[in-house]
Design a protein around this nucleic acid. Sequence first.
DNA 1: CGCCCCATGTAAGACGTTACATGATTGA
DNA 2: TCAATCATGTAACGTCTTACATGGGGCG
Lengths: 185, 185
Amino acid sequence: MPELTISNLGCALLGLLRQNPASGYDLRKIFSTTAMTTYSDSPGAIYPALKRLQQQGLIRGSVESGSGMRRRQVFRLTARGTAELKRWIRRPLVRADVIRGLNEVMLRFAFSEPVAGPSASVRLLRSLETELTSYIPELHEQLSAGKATMPMSGRLALESGIKSYECLLQWTRDALRTYERNKKE
Amino acid sequence: MPELTISNLGCALLGLLRQNPASGYDLRKIFSTTAMTTYSDSPGAIYPALKRLQQQGLIRGSVESGSGMRRRQVFRLTARGTAELKRWIRRPLVRADVIRGLNEVMLRFAFSEPVAGPSASVRLLRSLETELTSYIPELHEQLSAGKATMPMSGRLALESGIKSYECLLQWTRDALRTYERNKKE
DNA sequence: CGCCCCATGTAAGACGTTACATGATTGA
DNA sequence: TCAATCATGTAACGTCTTACATGGGGCG
């Protein structure tokens, strides 16, 4: 099997389609009305992405066209699509994922439980905890190193970044505790 | 004057070059070693971006090549570059900026004070506060609406997003207080 | 002499953005 | 019937990614 490359948007689509079969238009609405607004709801992004996924054999579309009904094409995951989604979620987490692709990490986590089971969710959380724990002190060093030369707004901006990572770390630990509690019951 | 479009990376470069004239290589090092790692340090991104900025007349490069020295080209902002940077920072903040381009907003804020003065920093913070204050309740509604149907990991992911915005709002207010205090002194 | 770092670039390809285009159906 | 919404797509364009390419200089 050739190694597939799936765009960020593609992965989001796979995850959503696993939950519920949907048309391109349905997916656009999800992106434009829910917290997933971080993804583009433009037809120029979604329809080509769906086409690519279908060409890769990850989803399959079936045209619904009863009379008195608008033509629409509903997509579903194939077995390969499910497998690929699982692989994406299970991919080991490296620092670059956390720094440059946090959105993607959170998306992977959001889909993790139903797709790959709670153990995958926990694995993701643990890696995230590890990466954050090693990264945050480095940011603190940068802050104290640049304190003298940076303008106040620059310093504040850096502090904002640090705080957001610290907040995320706290959330990560809370989430881990939630899973621990859940396991025991 | 034709309306210029400058990429996100381009704005980051402008902001950095205003602080200190630098070569492409210097800039790459900044991106690879500091908290600005969110931006690409790849030559394939930076050198073309610098070329574009120069063609737009926003920066000007001068080749330094003494003997016993490697050839390197140092870039500086032009007057137009400074003006354009200022315009970018002052651009009114809309919700889409906050949801899809928070990184860019923070970058604008980081550069705001030395480039456009503390009043611009405060304006940015106030807009940010407004947008966050109206957005966060909507996220809470989505959470309680989907509570029943969402898998735990999905719910947690949404909670993470909410928390990060709440954390940011708190930072925004702290930062505003910092500026208030500073003004009085 | 060979290797690594400095320093600059280019080329192919993938992806998203913006804008345009089409046609059917619902509802006022 | 006219506008809005449903529903799908395409085309041009800009930008980033990845990978490759080139050469000089320091250093062992």
